[in-house]
Design a protein around this nucleic acid. Structure first.
Lengths: 247, 247
DNA sequence: TTTATAAAATTGTGATATCATTTTCTGAAT
DNA sequence: ATTCAGAAAATGATATCACAATTTTATAAA
């Protein structure tokens, strides 16, 4: 069984479920030349980021292993990595979950995201080139298309690519792994928010970011990044959490 | 053999070394009720932070396992966690090392440390209490003693406690794990610097931090933290790296 | 229906076995 | 001394096994 046996399931057809059902971990292309452990890590990470694993659902190591058709060993390593990135919470009752968001934690994570990404963007600015700006502009154009198609998965991924492209023009940059870790902690909840919101990106802050990059204006860049992150889901997230935590 | 067989060792007494020699991983008190994997993680982390594993020394999973008298399984999990925190670099030739510092990376890490710690300190300020300030003052006093005794290990650890105490007064804080991760990346090199420097902490910036906390002055706190981090090892580190990289 | 208790199943953990690679060692030829 | 091939040893990765601890289910009593 791939799922937690704690979860009650009295299905009309009876019998045990085999390998698809409540928990559906989206497959990802298997990168050749990599280890199983790495594959599991990437796949679970992707599933968490895209909200395919509902926060609060309890999981087990062996359950995941069975679900993926693997032995517990590589799953354990992948899970432990995700756990040290706070993407998975290992509880003391032999269960683990994608942590539920709280209002306090949300505010902290968003503020931290702003602080680190602004800092990283500023340090990237001296390395910015017209070629990269062009590349980022293309990304932004593609995102406009994805918004109208309401393809949330690709939108999330491409939005990350956009930011990552900016930050990594600084070749010595050391903050990208940290930023990715924060994205991962915010991801599951952002997805919950996005599915409840109709208008995304009322004001396109990416255009502001691109403008600031073009003029090499650090102050404008700081504002643009701050606004992009804040406008994105901050307000909606606050609302959702305010309602949720009141109940 | 606990060490990399790549390392040549023609010892006069010949024969294989058993379990003490070049690589000496300081023991730590075994916390009861915890797993072997966690113990290995803490012990390796401590060893890296305190510079007991010389950066660049090549290690193997099995070597470490033998050294610690354990099977490879828990060692692998601990090593992978450290690897995802960039405390250990897993190379493609089946070896791993504590990464050597470069000037560029050093500058990035220190700047990042300043940015995150300033941000975290500011958000902690509203939660600051006289009791905590008193506790931090005592820590600072103890550090003065350790400086005169030149006890670098305890000094490093207590300095971290000092900062950690400040940042964690904010109960919802989410940045502590990130700060710890940066400390860990800086740790081995800081130790190399400290052993080559005679005067530590010419100006005691901790006193400035405590003053800013007492007056609840965010601007002064920002300056004090920035100066504390910058004065600590930044200048010496730059010098050491400038010389090293020229060669 | 609820509660207490015993039995059964499941779990996390860590050691071990196995396998394909990779590295290191050996020794001859240059 | 160097170089280079082949043999031998060591390594990382994963599956499997064993075991204690915990949870879940089954059973019986109130």
């Amino acid at each position: 069984m791939y799922f937690d046996s704690m979860t009650p399931f009295n299905k009309p057809w009876g019998g045990l479920m085999t390998s698809n059902g409540e928990l559906n971990i989206p497959d990802i292309p298997e990168i050749s030349g990599t280890t199983t452990q790495e594959y599991v890590y990437e796949r679970l990470r992707n599933a968490i980021m895209l909200g395919a694993i509902e926060p609060g659902t309890s999981l087990t190591m062996r359950g995941l292993a069975d679900c993926l058709g693997l032995s517990p060993t590589p799953v354990r390593e992948a899970v432990r990595r995700l756990s040290s990135e706070h993407a998975i919470q290992i509880k003391d009752n032999r269960r683990m979950t994608v942590p539920l968001m709280t209002l306090d934690r949300f505010e902290e994570l968003v503020a931290l995201r702003v602080a680190i990404e602004v800092h990283t963007a500023k340090r990237a600015l001296p390395y910015m080139s017209d070629v990269i700006i062009e590349k980022m502009t293309e990304m932004d154009d593609r995102m406009d298309g994805l918004i109208s198609e309401k393809d949330l998965d690709q939108l999330t991924l491409l939005n990350q690519d956009f930011h990552r492209t900016l930050y990594t023009v600084n070749p010595a940059q050391a903050s990208m792994p940290i930023i990715e870790s924060i994205w991962l902690q915010l991801g599951p909840f952002q997805r919950q928010v996005l599915t409840r919101v109709t208008e995304y990106y009322e004001i396109d802050r990416h255009k502001e970011i691109l403008a600031a990059l073009t003029t090499r204006d650090a102050i404008a860049l700081e504002d643009a990044i701050t606004n992009d992150i804040s406008d994105g889901v901050l307000r909606s997230g606050r609302n959702l959490l305010a309602v949720t935590e009141a109940a």
